[in-house]
Design a protein around this nucleic acid. Structure first.
Length: 786
DNA sequence: ACCCAGTCTTACTGCCCGGT
DNA sequence: ACCGGGCAGTAAGACTGGGT
């Protein structure tokens, strides 16, 4: 066919994948003409991309043509790049280049580059020296790129080795000093990256600040070159890709499975929580080292500052990692692998060094190493753990220092500045700085508490305005601090088991969640989260037919439940309740239902009844039930957690969504009702707190019976037995609840009145409602529930 | 001066999760 | 239910050391 129609076909390789473009002869000749032009453009663009940090000339400089040197520079630059191109962070560089050429008092017959190629060693020497004189230090890569670009014109590419030779020569002469600087790798904590820095001969000691400057410069250099490369790739894609044909760049990997497996092994997603746990572990490790004594142990308390000659302690990260318990590793680094006896190893508190090599290699794969390195990187940016200074070494001298990292013992935190400052403080507002001496575990804890407190609850403050917010963005992300998944292996397994047991049908009543949380010493939110996850997983498995699901669920039933199903109790109940359903209200009035019918069938009944009577009719009794359920949850969850898990609530008078809307209407339309409900939440909340405290002290006494006072014990015990925190029959609570219900009734009557004559009065009444709302906000309702 | 293989980093992208 | 931000894995270019 190609021959028949005189077609031309050409292979194109965008994204490393061959595509073939077929041309008619006419179009092909047009295209060829076009490519010639494009090639030309591409060439000049190529040159544009070379306009790196070292060829910057500010437009201001260019406007003053007085200097001969600058003229020369202009001539050189003009071939390659648009004038006035500007790249951040390297303004000095442009100054340096201008200066450099200005000081080059070349004879006039040598000014034009084309007359005399400047790639000679001489010329190179002079350029390097001038650059150094001005800037004190340069990175070798920067220097290379710059010189390369300048010498490119001669059709030859200056080799790296040529530059190395030149630099060595200069160093021998004593005009410069070449050092290697190490920087931590982002993706591999165990290794550092070395890069060359050329210092002016006048630079003496290399201070840590200077090293930081080297590293920053290297980072910026990388970023710049990558940004340029990315832009180039994009442009190429645009030019060559066949329109309409898009090739997927990546192979899809089913990530959720992997993540789920990691979570199942105890992985905690929140980065800062992981960083915290990691740092606490590292601190404890360093604390156990013999050289700890030199820093703290052998001095009198309170005299740390004097004795603390060193602000940090050296340690080997690899050795520390070997001492990390497997359980902690799975929490903070994570692994999707299931190795033999993993749970047993966790339970026994085995460290990574204690597990078989094969398994060790299995869990510490490349990805795990990457995740771990990211954590080290965060600690590095927080200035808690840094790469050992010994890594900074002179060229040619290599050291195999065993201590790879250093633990900072005197970290600090700056409080972020408010975004809006009162005018009076505008000029003399000072940063608040917290300094820590990590001599005791309590101080480490306090460091992390302060950090979380400063940045997570900073509100309107600008996290970028202070350290470490400015260098670690994660520190102010809410999600990084989410501690929902923090639990021990024991707790996790037990929780999984409980949830499996209770929620065979995929739904766990809220009451049970609260109970499980209490028994496992977890927060209700933690239990709810796992419950939700399981629920959604059950919904998401399309491969399971409902029959399979039932079988699966059935197989996990306890004998008691099987028996109950076998004798048909639930079926009978279901039948009876459905038959009797005049309204959903009636169904739920039957007391047995709550206890006996499993959740799923109750919802089935409710759903059915709802379908029949489209709208749920709210009565005083159903409102009462709704309120009780709502208030109970809010009291348990606390003020910070306001999202009510309607789907998990067990004793609702109507389907969860209906309840949700009803509650929203009640709270929104009338401020008085809202105020009264919140008062009630507070009352019950206080009672719940009291209850928890009693529980705790009871537990403590059971653990340490000798400590407790016998008489106190008796009174508390009896107290505890009769203390039913969510008893709505308690006069105080009862009257408050009745008050709410009365308010709802009044509102109903008001509404009826309003609906009657639809006229201007209606609008007035609405206004009244808003007035009420405003008033209610002024009520001393609560500090939390508003 | 150029090539090659290995390593490292960043931009990109799809998915997840929390908030509304 | 939807939206947007954040996270982590991936692709691919840049760099490096060794070699011709």
């Amino acid at each position: 066919m190609l021959k028949k129609f005189n077609l031309t076909w050409e292979a194109e390789v965008p994204d490393k994948t061959s595509q073939y473009r077929i041309w008619t002869s006419k179009n092909f000749s047009l295209y060829k003409a076009g490519t010639a032009l494009q090639n030309f453009e591409a060439l000049s663009e190529d040159c544009d991309d070379c306009s790196d940090l070292w060829s910057l000339v500010s437009s201001k400089d260019l406007e003053s043509p007085s200097s001969q040197g600058k003229l020369l520079l202009l001539e050189e630059e003009n071939h390659d790049k648009p004038i006035g191109h500007h790249i951040q962070n390297n303004r000095d560089a442009s100054a340096a280049v201008s200066q450099l050429v200005e000081e080059d008092k070349l004879p006039s017959n040598q000014r034009r580059r084309r007359c005399r190629p400047l790639s000679s060693d001489d010329q190179r020497h002079r350029r390097i020296l001038h650059m150094l004189k001005k800037k004190k230090f340069v990175l070798k890569v920067e220097l290379h790129k710059w010189l390369e670009r300048l010498e490119k014109k001669d059709g030859k590419i200056m080799d790296r080795k040529t530059l190395t030779r030149t630099l060595n020569k200069l160093q021998q002469e004593g005009s410069c000093k070449c050092i290697k600087v190490s920087a931590p790798l982002v993706t591999n904590y165990a290794r550092s990256r070395l890069f060359d820095v050329i210092l002016h001969s006048s630079v003496g000691d290399v201070s840590p600040e200077l090293v930081e400057q080297f590293r920053t410069r290297q980072r910026n250099f990388d970023t710049e070159s990558r940004a340029g490369a990315a832009a180039k790739v994009k442009q190429n894609q645009h030019m060559t890709a066949i329109p309409g044909l898009r090739i997927s760049r990546r192979v899809k990997v089913y990530k959720p499975l992997l993540l789920e497996a990691m979570y199942a092994n105890g992985f905690i997603g929140a980065k800062m929580i992981r960083a915290k746990l990691f740092h606490k572990f590292l601190w404890a490790y360093v604390n156990s080292l013999p050289n700890w004594c030199n820093a703290f142990g052998c001095t009198k308390a309170g005299h740390y500052d004097k004795s603390l000659n060193q602000s940090c302690l050296l340690f080997s990260m690899e050795a520390a990692m070997k001492e990390m318990p497997l359980e902690l590793f799975l929490q903070i680094v994570g692994s999707a692998k299931k190795i033999d006896n993993m749970i047993t190893l966790c339970r026994l508190g085995k460290t990574l060094s204690e597990i078989p090599t094969e398994e060790y290699n299995q869990i510490l794969d490349t990805h795990a190493n990457g995740r771990l390195s990211r954590l080290v990187n965060i600690l590095d940016k927080l200035k808690l753990v840094q790469l050992a200074k010994e890594f900074l070494e002179d060229a040619g001298v290599s050291s195999n220092a065993m201590y790879t990292h250093s633990m900072e013992l005197r970290p600090y935190i700056e409080e972020p500045m408010p975004r809006i400052l009162p005018s009076s403080q505008l000029n003399n507002h000072r940063k608040i700085r917290h300094d820590f001496v990590l001599s005791k575990k309590e101080f480490v804890d306090s460091y992390w508490e302060t950090l979380e407190c400063c940045y997570l609850t900073a509100g309107l403050a600008d996290p970028l305005s202070a350290f470490p917010g400015s260098s670690v963005p994660e520190v102010s992300h809410r999600r990084s601090w989410c501690s929902l998944r923090v639990m021990t292996t024991e707790q996790r397994l037990e929780l999984q088991q409980r949830i499996m047991d209770v929620g065979e049908k995929g739904k766990i009543p809220f009451k049970d969640c609260v109970r499980i949380a209490r028994e496992l010493n977890l927060s209700v939110e933690q239990v709810l989260r796992l419950s939700y996850e399981r629920q959604s997983r059950l919904h998401e498995q399309p491969s399971f037919t409902s029959k399979q699901k039932q079988q699966r669920v059935g197989s996990g039933l306890t004998p008691v439940r099987r028996k109950r199903r076998a004798d048909g109790t639930s079926l009978k109940l279901l039948k009876r309740t459905v038959q009797a359903s005049g309204s959903a209200e009636q169904i739920l009035e039957q007391p047995i239902v709550d206890e006996e019918v499993p959740m799923i069938s109750r919802y089935a009944i409710l759903r059915k009844s709802c379908m029949r009577s489209k709208r749920f009719f709210w009565t005083c009794e159903s409102d009462r039930k709704l309120l009780m359920a709502y208030i109970r949850v809010r009291a348990v969850l606390g003020a910070r957690y306001y999202r009510v898990p309607w789907k998990s609530l067990s004793d609702l008078p109507a389907p969860p969504h209906t309840c949700l809307r009803r509650m929203a209407v009640l709270l929104k339309t009338n401020g008085k009702i809202r105020g009264a409900v919140m008062c009630l939440c507070n009352l019950l909340g206080e009672r719940y707190v009291r209850y928890l405290e009693k529980e705790r002290s009871l537990k403590r006494r059971r653990l340490f019976p000798q400590i407790s006072n016998r008489s106190q014990e008796n009174s508390l015990d009896s107290d505890c037995e009769q203390f039913n925190w969510d008893d709505f029959e308690v006069p105080e609570i009862k009257s408050a609840l009745n008050e709410v219900l009365e308010l709802i009734q009044t509102e109903k009557i008001d509404q009826a009145k309003r609906i009657g004559p639809v006229n201007q009065k209606n609008i007035n009444n609405d206004n009244d409602v808003t007035k009420d709302t405003i008033c209610s906000q002024e009520l001393p309702v609560s500090n939390f529930y508003i």
